[in-house]
């Protein structure tokens, strides 16, 4: 019996090793909360154990697993209504101007992503970071392929706008900090 138990564990372990980091990143980039993200990853694997009969062979497996992941998050926030929303302030502060430009851009991008409404952030994460194909996303969200395309484009447009606001804000901040005795307020990066 021990052998049987180890066998099933080993197998779920294979899935765990493969999916824990992508799922963790999906949650952490969506919610900005590491502890909650780890809890939700555990919940996903518990649900895989419980509901594995619901997987229809021949359908995209990743769409199924992300379906479980989305439901786990929705159920969690239903039970425990959000105490805090994802604020860009929860991310590490933007590195001062003298650091590598690319590094700074990545951090601005992270902040810009955090400013998006959750559904837009989610669809960008799914296709760009989780590398789901458009067909898989359509299956996952239960919508048409064309709708997926439109939503991706809208999300990208909005990302550009918030990224723009942030870069202009940073330029302003830099100008402010160059002037002696002028301390820019926190969140000043959102001023345009």
């Amino acid at each position: 019996m021990l052998q049987v138990r180890d066998g099933a564990g080993e197998m779920l372990g294979v899935l765990f090793d493969r999916y824990q980091t992508p799922l963790f990143n999906f949650y952490s980039k969506l919610t900005g909360d590491r502890t909650l993200s780890e809890d939700l990853v555990q919940e996903v694997f518990l649900r895989i154990l419980k509901y594995r009969q619901s997987y229809r062979p021949g359908t995209p497996f990743r769409a199924w697993i992300y379906q479980i992941a989305r439901n786990a998050r929705i159920d969690h926030f239903r039970k425990f209504p959000r105490e805090r929303v994802f604020e860009p302030e929860m991310l590490p502060p933007v590195i001062p101007a003298d650091s590598a430009q690319e590094q700074q851009e990545v951090e601005l991008l992270q902040r810009a992503l955090a400013l998006l409404p959750e559904d837009k952030r989610e669809i960008l994460l799914l296709c760009r970071f989780q590398e789901l194909k458009y067909e898989e996303i359509a299956e996952l969200l239960g919508c048409q392929l064309n709708t997926v395309r439109t939503r991706i484009h809208r999300a990208l447009q909005e990302l550009r706008k918030s990224f723009h606001q942030l870069t202009q804000g940073t330029a302003l901040k830099r100008a402010n900090s160059a002037a002696p005795g002028n301390i820019s307020p926190r969140g000043g990066c959102r001023e345009v």
């Binding site: 824990q20 980091t21 993200s37 555990q42 694997f45 990545v106 992503l113 970071f129 990208l156």
Partner: peptide
């Protein structure tokens, strides 16, 4: 869009695997 792939991959804590085994 291209830059989105540069976002850093965060690693879950090492305790995560232990919790998984316990859950199993």
């Amino acid at each position: 869009w291209k830059k989105l792939s540069l976002l850093p991959v965060e690693q879950p804590s090492t305790a995560s695997r232990v919790r998984f085994e316990a859950m199993l």
